[in-house]
Design a protein around this nucleic acid. Sequence first.
DNA 1: TCGTGTCGCGCC
DNA 2: AAAGGGCGCGACACGA
Length: 549
Amino acid sequence: MHIALSSERDGRVLITPLDGSGERQGEQQHVSRSALPAAVALLEAERHPRWVWDDTTRWYPSLLAGGVRVERCADLRLRRTILRNSDLTASTPLALSAPDAWDAPAGAQDAADGLFELEERLPLDPVAEFAWQQGSAVSGLALLLSAESAGALVAAEIQYAGLPWREDLHRDLLERTLGSRPVSGERPQLMEALVVHIRQALEAPQLNPDSPAELLKALRRAGVMVSSTSKWELTEVDHPVVEPLLRYKKLARLLSANGWHWLEANVRDGRFRPEYVVGGVVTGRWASKGGGGALQLPRQIRGAVVADPGWKLVVADASQLEPRILAALAADRGMVEAGSASDLYAGIVARGAVGAREDAKIAMLGAMYGATTGDSGRLMPALARAFPKAIELVENAARAGERGQKVSTLLGRSSPFPSEAWREMQSRASSDAATDADRKRARTEARTWGRFTRNFVVQGTAAEWALCWMASLRRSLHELSGGAWFTRGPHLAFFMHDELVIHCPAEVADAVADAVRDAAVEAGRLLFGTMPVTFPLTVAVVDNYGQAK
DNA sequence: TCGTGTCGCGCC
DNA sequence: AAAGGGCGCGACACGA
């Protein structure tokens, strides 16, 4: 059972029941915007449909605000992106058609109007688009299409519910770490004190350490021969300025990224409401937007995330997700077995591939990111001998990218083609007129694109695992809530690539911890069937996010 | 006074 | 000499 929602020119909403292929099935209704939540709630209860709409971010927030949660949806815009780009649908009319308004980015319908011809600016018809998509979709993409849409529901629900945030604790942290809040334009006391030390150590009384250019000059004048002012380079240097400078940088970062200004802009009524962009990264990872920086919440301030009285936070983190994904994706038995205990890297050492756990970690990162030099590059041959299938998979992905081909994740999301400029560079380099410089530059660019496609298959498949994990958990949390409005019971409150935070009444925290583990098992089964691969979680039941890990 | 590019840093 | 993938953001630098 599917039901499409679409806007009409008169501002009302058209409700169209559909069958699974997109054929109309039964009577349409028209309702006003204000009557929509009630109409959806009724149909949801009676028929449990999959709601078909152009863009979850255009429909779901107002339904949630109206007290209506839905079970399933088909987000046509997200599905369009997958279907247009996937290798699995490359020869379908949809993939071959010219881009239209359905290809515009999330929430950009209005901004996109100028990009398309007049006739494309008519209200989008979800019924026609759904039928077209259903005709183009192949069975191999079904899981990805539904997981992506489920992700859109999760993202909207997280934003609606928000992450509980204690503004008072955040302010205490800022005052302890930076000093009391300065009048605008000035530095907090503890930062100003460090500036005095830095200026003395560099004999540069006017220095503004916030300016990388000025700072670099002052460092070099003082004999500190660095090529940038970055932390990793400064750590290598032995000079009295390094310690206060690194401390200053840390404080400056806290102030600008998560200081008083961030707090006022992003926390309201005790909640931080992250704004996720589902599918915002080409690999399928989520992105975030707005000043919130949802996907980079620093550890330093997680102490301000505190469960409501009588509630708990269940924090779950998928350990070593990407290397485990690679092992399973490649069906590399040795690497899957190395990961059968809780620590994959220890398992790699135990199998004799490398000598130390730290080497195993560096080597695996190098394999996934494409390192060729340094410690990571040196360890690669040993890793390739021990785990030939896993390494072959990432090498093949890199070679395909270097040739300008697409690569795909397990569930069928494909990488984009490289740019036209990239292709021209490659063909110029292989022509008779090519100079050595042409060839060299083309080779460098080919390798760069190869590192992207190499990483794409692992990062993208890990993102698919995470989508399945969330979708599965969302279902079981709903069951645990026993019919109450979802924010009254256990609900997802935060997501960060391989980590979830669930806010829940204390009495169900243990059940939630079990549910989040079960959901990880289910995600592994959805992606890899009966392969004996495990995705262990670190689960903590805490009052305060800072207490986890 | 804009917009744009670069750096540096945080997250995975 | 070559250089590990993906992001978002704020601050600074610079040119229109």
